[in-house]
Design a protein around this nucleic acid. Structure first.
Lengths: 195, 195
DNA sequence: GCAATATTTGCAGACTATGCAAGGATTGAG
DNA sequence: CTCAATCCTTGCATAGTCTGCAAATATTGC
């Protein structure tokens, strides 16, 4: 886990560029900011900007951290109910996001107004869902059930952030609990009466 | 519901451009097709192309049809179980998509390789989910439950198409049933043991 | 057939993104 | 410390995206 000087600098520059991108986007909207302006604000050349991110939308979103092996082990070999283990994962993810609420708010604002950014995020989420579904494959009835559960994870995080952004002074954790309850209610609705 | 000559021509040109875009994309990949080429293949000027679609990704996806009032009424005032009414809506949507499987296959292929296209589709889906959640607001326990149910609708359609695309000779309808079962199983998992 | 209204088109111009090659910085070995 | 290998940054050239504008063309309703 020790990074070379080069790697540390690279990460730092990437974060730096993301900040600059988001701050400019908050002022004028990402559409109205040029890559040139972002590069200047980040202290790198326009060409170097594209060595770090494929485009300004990707710069605004940044490089999201991967799931830890620890988290995935809980999903694979957890002893509690599946629902409880999933909720645990959600709590952890939301807690880590709550560490920088301002960043989250800025990213959220970009995502709401920018189609390309939404597409890039979808790409990240697809990869995450694949990972989660993989971890669940032993515990779920079959592949499709695992996929449906994985989707609920990313959806619930998205829903919680959305609620937190729109409902004035609800904490991220409370928003998660609220959306989670809605999900459980929806699951009851779907599973109880039909067939 | 009668359209003027102008409106009919406009729709026809739009479909024409979508076809041309998709056919070129199948040959070389959408990334390697220029808007100029699409315009020539569609028989319009490069400038006119942009009067119809904001970009080539939007042209590939096309203008998806809205839900009919009839469909929405079933959601609002259906007498069967909510799960059954939702399944009905899904069956109808999938049946209408099955009318042009080649188009669906081409659009799917673009979506799998193009981030921007995924973002545009997400935009359409968000709007659909809002509509569905709105219809469900009276029948669901609360707003969050309705939102979770609406999300399952678009997710299930997406999942069914994905399955149909990848599993050799499964029909769209069978794919939908399979994904739907996975969803029901997932719902049972989430609703039964926890709390 | 004519005036009002919409659509198409070409053109100019700002912005995005990539390949390439030169120049600079970092690294590890001696 | 020094040198060679390696990696990173940068400027430049270039292909492509997309918008505003104004002239030309087509459609509509009267």
């Amino acid at each position: 886990m020790t990074l070379s000087l080069r790697e540390r600098r690279r990460q730092e520059t990437a974060r730096h560029i993301q900040r600059a991108t988001l701050e400019l986007a908050m002022q004028s909207g990402l559409e109205n900011v040029t890559t040139e302006e972002i590069a200047v604000a980040s202290g790198v050349s326009a060409r170097t900007f594209f060595n770090y991110f494929a485009n300004k939308e990707a710069a605004a979103i940044g490089h999201p951290p991967n799931f830890s092996e620890e988290d995935k082990d809980v999903l694979r070999n957890g002893t509690a109910s599946l629902a409880a283990d999933l909720k645990l994962l959600l709590d952890k993810q939301i807690a880590s996001m709550a560490e920088d609420e301002e960043l989250l708010r800025m990213v959220g604002r970009v995502l709401r107004s920018n189609e390309k950014a939404r597409g890039i995020l979808e790409g990240f989420l697809m990869a995450e869902r694949r990972e989660i579904a993989d971890c669940l494959s032993h515990r779920a009835i079959n592949h499709h059930t695992a996929a449906a559960l994985a989707k609920t994870v990313t959806d619930t995080i998205g829903g919680a952030i959305y609620l937190w952004e729109h409902d004035g002074n609800m904490s991220l954790g409370t928003a998660l609990d609220t959306v989670w309850e809605g999900l459980i209610d929806a699951s009851r609705t779907l599973s109880l009466p039909a067939d």
